[in-house]
């Protein structure tokens, strides 16, 4: 039984191809301007990696912002449900899933089977999303993937306005001009981000185990701050946290074929 999940997000597009609970391919690409192009390209990549043709996929579920435009899917499911499902697959004890994507941030509570019980999303502005970190990394002149490590090396984190990305950017520039170290500013960026996310998580309530999906889960500074703010350990997922949505979609596809949820 070969199934696939296809997650077309605003910044990246992901596909997971699975057979009998084993992942055959899970490529990630930058999204194109049109979701259908992204979908085709990332699926082609996945298929060639897995050595399969499209017809071999027995069931495919689409998710993400672009899910309505994916040509080859059998069904679509919201990314909120998919992230919950994917996280549950990787970490059966997961009850709270924090997903920080490029444009939004969501927190989901799931039951033992991975079914969504409660969720909240924050998508009204960039502060509190991956985009915030991207902008700040850019201003600081560090690579996005290096931003997280700055926290550990900070000595005296600076105060940072964090309600609005545009203003926070101005503050970062001012701090740079005042000669504050990149580490101190970077740590504050990560902390500011974590604080905004913590409000959301607390709104639905923390229940163990907690895990994170989405690109920001790779930022160790944000993760550490969040752990401190929430007072829980955030369990690391065994896979690239960016593909959790696509993985969840693939798991849904598998369940579909097997006839109903587990």
């Amino acid at each position: 039984m070969i199934v696939a999940g296809c997650d077309i997000g605003s910044l990246t597009a992901k596909v997971v191809i699975m057979t009998n609970g084993k992942i055959l391919a899970s490529p990630v690409i930058k999204s194109k301007s049109r979701p259908e192009e992204s979908a085709k390209e990332v699926m082609d990549m996945a298929l060639s990696k897995a050595g399969l043709c499209l017809d071999a996929i027995e069931y495919c579920i689409g998710t993400g912002y672009g899910r309505g435009k994916i040509p080859f899917v059998n069904e679509v499911i919201s990314e909120i449900a998919c992230h919950g499902k994917g996280a549950r697959f990787l970490l059966p004890t997961a009850r709270t899933v924090i997903d920080i994507g490029g444009q939004d941030c969501k927190t989901m509570k799931i039951d033992r089977s991975g079914k969504l019980i409660k969720f909240i999303t924050n998508d009204k502005c960039a502060a509190g999303t991956g985009r915030f970190l991207e902008v700040m990394a850019n201003v600081l002149g560090v690579r996005l993937e290096d931003l997280g490590a700055l926290s550990a090396r900070a000595r005296a984190p600076v105060a940072l306005a964090s309600t609005c990305t545009v203003w926070a950017q101005a503050e970062v520039v001012r701090n740079i001009n005042e000669g504050k170290s990149i580490e101190d500013i970077g740590a504050s960026v990560n902390e500011a981000m974590a604080k905004r996310v913590a409000i959301l998580v607390n709104s639905v309530g923390v229940e163990k185990d907690v895990c994170m999906s989405g690109g920001v889960a790779k930022n160790i500074g944000v993760v550490k701050s969040l752990e401190r703010l929430l007072g829980v350990k955030i369990k690391k997922l065994k896979l690239d946290p960016q593909i959790v949505g696509a993985l969840g979609a693939a798991v849904f596809a598998k369940e579909k074929l097997e006839g109903g949820a587990e």
Binding site: Y65, S78, E79, I80, F119, T121, D123
Partner: peptide, 26 residues
């Protein structure tokens, strides 16, 4: 489900739809 939104030309249908879908799945 609670949902904050903008009025009029600023409505972002994609995001609202994502939440509604998830709520219905819930």
């Amino acid at each position: 489900m609670r949902m904050e939104r903008e009025y009029g030309p600023l409505v972002e249908t994609g995001r609202i739809k994502m939440r509604i879908d998830a709520f219905l799945e819930r």
